[in-house]
Design a protein around this nucleic acid. Structure first.
Length: 289
DNA sequence: AGGGGGACCTGTGCGC
DNA sequence: TGCGCACAGGTCCCCC
């Protein structure tokens, strides 16, 4: 489901409800998502105070101080279908916990109650998501972060990007999906950025000149920032945690627009769909070279 | 070492 | 209406 803009939208939706609150109860309905839940997950989160929420690429980071005064990070990756939902009507939460917690939705795997009568759930039908719990001090060594590239949210270092792409013989589409090149891009925003830059997804990553890389970097920054402003993209069921729908999908130029006419003025090209390393690429065969 | 393919899961939409 | 297939926002592992 979520690429960087969707995860950032989730973070912004959850932060006002979670930051500064204490977790009164947390319950798991199964032993694993993609991976098993961490050892002592419920015990360590129970009674913990949430200091703040942050984000790295597509990872949501919930920084907590445990009841035993340890600084931990509760890391969540939403996979394809992970979703947090905030319920403000959690007044009966304690009763529900003490009796039996009836799921509010299918695939509701994690439920937590805060000290504010707010209840937050995590649902994930495909269970490609996962959660980890590590000491704050070990965050830089978290395996997924060790080789991770820079965020595409602020000015991209074009020289550094150029250096990384020179080592790649794969199509630029595949290279940009690699989180060690830039962190947080996924299938939608790579397609959209390549369209805006006028670069074919089939172009070999090592054969894109400096001028075109400058255009590509600017296109990536713009598409990510516009998508964050729009609250992400809602394809099937993505919602911000407060239930709001993202609306960036209305601004797609190529994603899922097979056979439509190119939106670039006077181009008149037709959007094509091809498969690259097992994933759909959408592009205009006329103005993307 | 980089890169491609399959695996991991469930849900939905389409053609027959 | 029902069945089977293709496809879905991501990542990891295996093998060349």
């Amino acid at each position: 489901m979520p690429e960087l803009p969707e995860v950032e939208t989730v973070r912004r939706g959850l932060a006002p409800h979670m930051e500064g609150r204490v977790i009164n109860y947390i319950a798991l309905r199964r032993a694993n998502l993609r991976y098993p839940f961490p050892e002592g997950f419920e015990r360590r989160l129970n009674g913990a105070k949430i200091t703040h929420l942050s984000r790295r690429a597509k990872y949501l980071l919930c920084h907590i101080k445990t009841a035993g005064n340890q600084d931990l990070v509760w890391i969540t990756h939403l996979g394809m279908t992970g979703r947090f939902t905030v319920y403000n009507d959690g007044a009966d939460t304690i009763g529900r916990f003490h009796n039996q917690i009836e799921p509010r939705a299918t695939h509701e795997h994690v439920v937590l109650a805060l000290d504010s009568q707010v209840e937050i759930t995590y649902c994930d039908s495909r269970r490609f998501g996962f959660m980890h719990l590590i000491p704050e001090a070990e965050l830089p060594q978290y395996p997924a972060f060790v080789a991770m590239g820079p965020e595409p949210t602020s000015a991209i270092d074009v020289d550094a990007l150029s250096k990384r792409l020179k080592a790649r013989r794969s199509p630029i589409k595949a290279a940009l999906l690699d989180q060690s090149v830039l962190a947080g891009l996924g299938n939608i925003y790579v397609c959209e950025a390549l369209f805006r830059a006028g670069i074919s997804p089939k172009t070999s990553a090592d054969r894109i000149g400096k001028q075109r890389l400058v255009r590509l970097s600017a296109a990536i920054e713009a598409v990510i920032s516009e998508a964050i402003s729009a609250g992400g993209s809602t394809l099937r069921d993505f919602r911000a945690s407060d239930g709001e729908l993202g609306y960036f999908q209305h601004q797609f130029d190529v994603y899922d627009r097979t056979n439509e006419v190119c939106s670039r003025p006077d181009c008149q090209g037709i959007i094509k769909r091809i498969v690259q390393s097992g994933r759909s690429s959408f592009y205009c065969g006329k103005c993307q070279r």
